[in-house]
Design a protein around this nucleic acid. Structure first.
Length: 594
RNA sequence: GGCCCAAUGGCUCAGUUGGUUAGAGCGCCGCCCUGUCACGGCGGAGGUCGCGGGUUCGAGUCCCGCUUGGGUCGCCA
């Protein structure tokens, strides 16, 4: 049973009380973090979202009834305390912001009692995710999660302030949309009024924001909820939030300029990190060649080296075979790892196989300069020496090679490079390396479907220099697309959009769309483009990932209030759930027997 | 869909080559305690070892299947 708070008014949050308030009578309300009952003196650590404040109960001050009440307090009781702020007569607690003061309680009300929580409400919880998420409302009381959500709020507020300053309008776009099957799977919502018809939840506000450009709202942004029905990862949830923007009468440099200043502002104001501008830009091809990734982590080296020319003509069938099939042989140099035990190297080989490699070739350069290699017997000493030289190999180094189609080689070495960096602790969490990756390929060939897919989306503008190749060599066309990468994570991405009918038609053609099919899916956008469309471009950030990186979290779940687990269900609410037969009937839906 | 990891009192964990009544810390409950803040002291309760099957004289421990959670590949324009 809880008491009423009528007649009381909270004057401060716990850590809003400071030495300045000594002598004042104040009222604080919050949760009991901890009780220390010394018999005729009781201490309570009172907690709210701001932090902790010590309350002292002495029968002489709080009265007999109040003191008895204080004796019944347990973890997570919600209480209201009226009392005087005093300098502590006992020792100062250096660990608390309010460590020099305490409140001498003059009255206490128990606003709500609490059962013993199923896990401790404390920082750095070791509790399993499953239990935390089942009782997320308790998990959210923990200071580290509170800090994350407070930071998230700060980042959106700062973004809004900056965008406002830059002349952007915040405009909301629909959640109930038309399904467009390109790209990720849609979450579908049945229509009651139109049985058999479905809305889709937006994967992003892409088309709407382009329409807003057509309508003249020349700078738009939105904190946009997006939905994708794909498998989850540590950095992927089925619903997530984008900081989404679109601008008219701009080209690549304009978008990059305003976003660099946004990032500089937000990172400075939110976490005090200075971002030096301009940020490095790197064409996609260079990113792949040097790092084997379109989102390179540039906090460490260990760059890929193409040794195809060096090993050309060697006897090693794996290398020769890869080159014959149009692939390449590339390596990375793990400096100083030449003495890595065989078992550990075997683990790296297994790791590589997980990324499609058939194997991994290696050379250990011993301290005395001799070589230990998985393929030395297939090569002459001169060939090996040349290979080591090409890899800048020195005594004590470990050289790892992958040979396959380029895509496989990049994937394998890109992943291996990151794995080694993790193992060797080369990643400084307090270093923030931003990078623009530009000039992405416009199209990506799907072996499975034997057609091109848009790498970004079908409205991405090809680079002017490559327009001529759209029909003759579509795979070689580069796009005016850009990703912003932070420490190896894709923070955001965007592109200049096509605003000319003829280019758009050639794009659809390259994608294998008939005019009818294109109209079927995107008719309203193409119609809008008939009536005067400004050149426009945009970008969207993954807000969750941004805050995750700022807070050094391992997962975006830590920066979202109510995340879902691996199979996209919610352990707390038990969503998704089966629905009433009546609801289904109304929607004209029959569920197949499972 | 594939691969890898985990599951033992409320929480976090230990548990040897399979061997008696499965332990610890924290938490919880009771009593005592006026300066604690990892309060202290004394006492106490609490476990079908995730589920099902198998091997064995005997399974927390070995084997198989499943469930749940995590990581990852595929997937994510």
């Amino acid at each position: 049973m809880g008491e009423s708070m009528q007649g009381m008014k909270r004057t401060h949050r716990c850590t809003e009380v400071s030495n300045q308030n000594i002598g004042e009578k104040i009222t604080v309300m919050g949760w009991v973090q901890k009780r220390r009952n010394l018999g005729s003196l009781i201490f309570i650590d009172l907690r709210d979202r701001s932090g902790i404040l010590q309350i002292v109960f002495d029968e002489n001050t709080v009265g007999t009834a109040g003191f008895e009440k204080a004796g019944t307090l347990r973890s997570e009781f919600v209480i209201a305390i009226e009392g005087q702020v005093v300098k502590r007569s006992g020792a100062v607690n250096e660990n608390l912001a309010t460590g020099e003061i305490e409140i001498i309680a003059e009255s206490i009300r128990i606003l709500s009692e609490s059962e013993t929580p199923p896990f401790p409400i404390e920082e750095d919880s070791q509790t399993k995710d499953e239990l935390r998420l089942k009782h997320r409302y308790l998990d959210l009381r923990r200071p580290d999660i509170q800090r994350n959500l407070i930071m998230r709020s700060k980042v959106t507020m700062l973004t809004r302030a900056f965008m406002e300053q830059e002349g952007f309008l915040e405009i909301e776009t629909p959640i109930l949309c038309r399904s467009t099957p390109e790209g990720a799977r849609d979450y579908l919502v049945p229509s009651r009024v139109h049985p058999g018809n479905f809305y889709a939840l937006p994967q992003s506000p892409q088309i709407y924001k382009q329409l807003l450009m057509c309508s003249g709202y020349d700078r738009y942004f939105q904190v946009a909820k997006c939905f994708r029905d794909e498998d989850l990862r540590a950095d992927r949830q089925p619903e997530f939030t984008q900081l989404d923007m679109e601008l008219s009468f701009v080209d690549v440099d304009d978008v990059i300029d305003v976003n660099e200043r946004l990032l500089q502002y937000v990172f400075k104001e939110a976490i005090g990190v200075d971002v030096a501008l301009p940020l490095t830009r790197m064409p996609w091809q260079e990113a792949m060649d040097r790092f084997g990734s379109d989102k390179p982590d540039t906090r460490f080296g260990m760059e890929l080296v193409d040794v195809s020319a060096v090993v050309k003509g060697c006897e090693f069938a794996v290398f020769a075979g890869a080159l014959e099939n149009g692939g390449s042989v590339r390596g990375i140099n793990a400096k100083g790892q030449g003495a890595m035990p065989r078992k550990k190297i075997d683990k790296l080989v297994e790791f590589a196989k997980g990324y499609g490699a058939k194997g991994l070739a290696y050379i250990c350069i011993n301290e005395d300069g001799t070589l230990k290699s998985s393929f030395a017997k297939f090569m002459s000493e001169a060939e090996l020496a040349e290979l080591v030289k090409a890899m800048d190999g020195a005594s004590g180094d470990l050289l790892l090679f992958a040979a396959d189609k380029n895509k496989v080689v990049w994937d394998v070495l890109g992943a291996l490079r990151l794995e080694l960096a993790k193992q060797l602790e080369l990643l400084d969490p307090n270093q923030y390396n931003f990078l623009w990756v530009t000039e992405f390929p416009l199209l990506e060939w799907s072996e499975e479907d034997e057609r091109f897919y848009a790498m970004h989306h079908p409205f991405t503008m090809p680079m002017e220099e490559d327009w001529a190749k759209i029909d003759s060599d579509p795979g070689a066309v580069r796009a005016k697309a850009y990703d912003i990468v932070l420490n190896g994570t894709e923070l955001g991405g965007g592109s200049v959009r096509i605003h000319q009918n003829d280019i758009q038609e050639r794009m659809f053609e390259a994608l294998g769309f008939t005019k009818e099919a294109a109209y079927e899916q995107f008719g309203f956008l193409l119609d809008a483009f008939k009536y005067g469309v400004p050149p426009h471009a945009g970008l969207a950030y993954g807000l969750d990932r941004m805050v995750m990186l700022m807070m050094h979290s391992d997962s975006i779940r830590e920066v979202m209030a109510f995340p879902k687990v691996k199979d996209a269900s919610c352990l707390m609410s038990k969503a998704p759930n089966q629905v009433d037969g009546k609801q289904l009937e109304e929607l004209g839906i029959a569920v197949a027997e499972l």
